[in-house]
């Protein structure tokens, strides 16, 4: 008997093709979230400067500027400064990086570049090689690495040192090279 009652009710409901619903509405407030990261950029503060040096007519040499600062002369290369000490103005290349606080980033750049020169007497001088370009990041406290992390202000500093090789008998000239780096979020 009870089963019969259930059956009747079910059939009645099923016989209503469009049982009028109340037209009630309900709403919910969802949310869309996104984090748009500020661009990262590097601004040059100092050039990589090897200073003034002399070359031997018979022995090749090199001057190395460390990323942490300081210069080291080998072979026929020596500083052309009063007293023979390190010349003022010798510095590694320095860049200030700014971007999103706390983000890690990667420094990309060449391992070696070529300096072109202009002879004191005029005309082009033979190119000189600059290699052993090393990267120092403040965020890694002295470690030589190419992956850094921006601090809570979104900043970091990069220093790049390198070695300039001076062949024997290199004529007096001014040399210049372009060192391009790229910083990208990692």
């Amino acid at each position: 008997m009870r089963g019969g009652l259930f059956t009747v009710i079910a059939c009645m409901a099923g016989a209503s093709p469009a049982l009028a619903a109340p037209g009630q509405s309900a709403s919910a407030l969802g949310q869309a979230e996104a984090v748009i990261i500020a661009p990262i950029m590097a601004v040059s503060i100092n050039d990589l400067d090897f200073g003034s040096l002399t070359s031997s007519p018979s022995a090749s040499g090199a001057v190395t500027v460390a990323a942490e600062g300081g210069a080291n002369y080998t072979g026929g290369a020596s500083p052309a400064c009063a007293g023979g000490g390190s010349c003022a103005g010798i510095t590694p290349a320095r860049f200030r990086v700014s971007g999103e606080a706390g983000r890690s980033y990667t420094v990309s750049g060449p391992l070696a570049i070529t300096a072109t020169g202009t002879l004191m007497a005029g005309g082009a001088a033979p190119a000189l090689a600059i290699d052993a370009l090393t990267v120092h990041l403040d965020s890694h406290a002295g470690a030589i690495t190419r992956i850094g992390q921006l601090d809570d202000k979104g900043e970091d500093r990069i220093a790049i040192g390198g070695r300039l090789t001076v062949p024997a008998g290199t004529a007096a000239a001014h040399y210049r090279a372009t060192l391009t780096i790229m910083v990208t979020y990692s």
């Binding site: 969802g30 979230e33 984090v35």
Partner: peptide, 8 residues
């Protein structure tokens, strides 16, 4: 940059 929270 920005942290967006857009109501839907």
């Amino acid at each position: 940059g920005a942290e967006l929270a857009i109501p839907i």
